[in-house]
Amino acid sequence: MLQQVFKESYTRFLMDNANVEDYRSDVFEVDPKNLASLCYMAPEGLASKLDPNDLLGSAIALYEAYRYPPVVVSDLNLWAFLSHVAHFDFVKKIVGEIPNGEKGKDFVVDKFVFNRKKGFMDMPLPNLYWSVQLTVCEELEDPYAYTRLLYSLGKARRYLLRSTVFRIKEAMFGILDFVNDNPDVFRTHCNSRVAYIVRILNDIGAYKKLSFLERDFFYNFLESRKEEIIAITNIHVVNGSNVFSSNDDEDDDGEFDF
């Protein structure tokens, strides 16, 4: 069966007119006239591999299932369809309780449809998918070794996934190699320390062409600043509004809060 997606007009309709009550049902009803098909086959048996208690495993399963070109997996109509139809139950379990009223409407648009200002990283499905896409390394015996390191950071991985520096492959390797070799650094105050790492790399990006550099540079740079990173125990010390939001609690080092 060909992979289905929402028609753009329907996704746009949901952005402005989502009905919160529709999301409290077990199934999200969609009129077939609002669907289109891609020229790729839809994966089979994926639903059984998605477990809200195993986000790492689910992320890998999503990535392996949707091996479409980047221009396809960046289509918001695809993720809107998958979030509403193919994997509605899974997304609902991840996001938990849906608020009432206007907050509820904003919530369902953020998590199921697409928020133009917040983008994909606020939606569970594409977030999980891209967390693997950005860290997979096919040359390794375990291509997901870096993905596992990313998920070892728990909720703090959000700072890396939302940063532009993490899209530089060599930077990703260097940062996560540093995480791997310094587990004690991230055992506490993980949120604030990872946010701080993003900040100091952004700072040097003003005069250094980060994408020009190899992973050793990023690893050695973080090594040289390790004491400074360890000294970070409060996320409010990390300046720069692009790094963290005011809702972040540095003491809450738990799982990703969608």
């Binding site: 070109p69 980047p70 221009v71 396809v72 997996v73 960046s74 891209w130 896409q133 950005l134 532009t164 899209r167 530089i168 062409k209 994408s211 020009f212």
Partner: peptide
């Protein structure tokens, strides 16, 4: 450096000469 945020694309192209051609996979960017 080429940045295509729609597809999380970020790549760098290097050259020893000031005149060069960048080639980007069509399926990687939009």
């Amino acid at each position: 450096e080429v940045n295509g945020s729609s597809t999380y694309y970020r790549e760098i192209f290097r050259s020893k000469k000031p005149d060069f051609v960048i080639e980007i996979p069509r399926s990687a960017v939009k």
